[in-house]
Write a protein that binds this DNA or RNA. Structure first.
Lengths: 245, 245
DNA sequence: TGCAAGGTAATTGTCCGACAATTAAAACAA
DNA sequence: TTGTTTTAATTGTCGGACAATTACCTTGCA
């Protein structure tokens, strides 16, 4: 295990990097045990505290898990889809909120990705996923629903669409794009009229998926993108006017 | 700043979580300074070592940066696209390598995503990006090129295609899918014949992007997916036969 | 006054030693 | 054999110490 001497980096960062490289390169396999903290501090010739800080960095990236007691230690962790989802969503959300991504850009990306998996969803959708989509549509029709709940239901529906493609890699990649949009979407106040419109398009979309009509699904997603964009622009315009007055 | 008492988690993990929540929820803005390690250890009533381990976890996720000296400390970090790319690619690569994702699944996801951005690339491609694609095609035609270099060039070409869509959110999401495929692709030995075939499709694809012909680009990507899949299946079959004999 | 040199204090980085908590395995007793 | 106790290894937490770095203040000088 080599240690690249980048003189400006912290020791714990250097050690974390060398261990991370070993894991990513496949030098260590899943569930393999790392040397104990004492052994690592000997190998790298640093104190145990420094080794611990390095290990905490790796734990934060879900690369290792630790276990106390005899025959405990740090083990290479199998990265599950669920954890990867979580990290991806957190990162995507922060990226959008910290970098002032325009509503248009995020919207365009989201619907482009969804259109990419619509044909596969048409092929492979299960009754289960159709039922989920119908249930969310029903929820969205409830009059007392808050804007936040409406958005959450929207995300759930689109998530079902993505999962219907039955491609875990695709689901993983798209989860970030769709869920990271939610804070942006939450800024929109949905009138009764706009909800009705959206529910209508959602129904057409679900019908298309059920009928396995990819062209129709694509059309519905285009309509949804256009309408969402209109709503978003209205909100932005209203906000700009307000702050300008 | 609240601390949820999850009794089974480490103290440093709990503290990291509470600070992370504060950042993600927007309670702390970019470049805002966190309390010093001494103050945090007072607030959370733990030792400084424990606070430091928590801060290292956050640093590993690029949520904070630290600075030494007077008026130094830990500051909320603006997550840049570049860092997010890096994290995303690392995570995606690990996810694929650790979970035995089939070549078919990864391939399908990759080309579905690329087809999603092809229409936008047709609209917005710049001469620069076309030149990059042409240059990579030229590289791929060199006879002495190693399989690894051929794959790297392949990734570079597709990366140019994605960037041509001029949507940073899309680029970010797709970078993981495309680059994480490279280790899988590297397993394939490309014969002179198959390279010729791939270069031909790449040329058709680039022509379509230049001519802004979305349908033709879509067709080329479908052809590329089908051919890549064939190559991958051959490799897997050969490998299976070898291990079986 | 203005400026430069040097000192000071605050803060993170690293090290050390100690003890608590946990857990698997070994040793032991019935 | 089976159940219990002891033991050893390992991570988790604490406290203190010092080094390294850096912004800020003080002091002396022109």
């Amino acid at each position: 295990m080599k240690i690249e001497t980048d003189p400006k980096a912290d020791l714990s960062a250097q050690i974390a990097k060398s261990i991370r490289d070993a894991i990513v390169n496949g030098d260590m396999i899943v569930d393999e045990r790392l040397p104990s903290e004492a052994e690592l501090s000997d190998q790298f010739d640093v104190s145990r505290s420094t080794v611990r800080e390095a290990l905490k960095r790796l734990a934060a990236q879900s690369l290792i898990r630790t276990q106390r007691g005899a025959s405990g230690g740090a083990f290479v962790r199998r990265l599950s889809y669920e954890e990867a989802y979580g990290q991806h969503i957190t990162t995507s959300t922060l990226l959008l909120s910290m970098n002032a991504v325009s509503f248009e850009t995020a919207c365009e990306a989201r619907y482009a990705l969804e259109r990419a998996c619509a044909p596969m969803a048409c092929d492979r959708r299960t009754p289960d996923q159709l039922a989920t989509m119908r249930a969310e549509i029903h929820r969205q029709s409830q009059p007392g629903l808050s804007d936040e709940s409406f958005c959450a239901s929207d995300v759930a529906l689109h998530r079902a669409l993505v999962d219907a493609a039955h491609n875990p890699v695709l689901s993983y990649q798209l989860a970030g794009a769709v869920e990271a949009m939610q804070p942006l979407m939450n800024m929109i106040t949905f009138t009764a009229r706009s909800r009705e419109e959206i529910v209508g398009i959602h129904s057409r979309l679900t019908d298309a998926i059920e009928a396995q009509d990819a062209a129709k699904a694509d059309h519905a997603l285009h309509a949804l993108e256009a309408y969402t964009l209109t709503l978003g622009r209205d909100v932005m315009a209203a906000r700009a006017q307000k702050s300008g007055s």
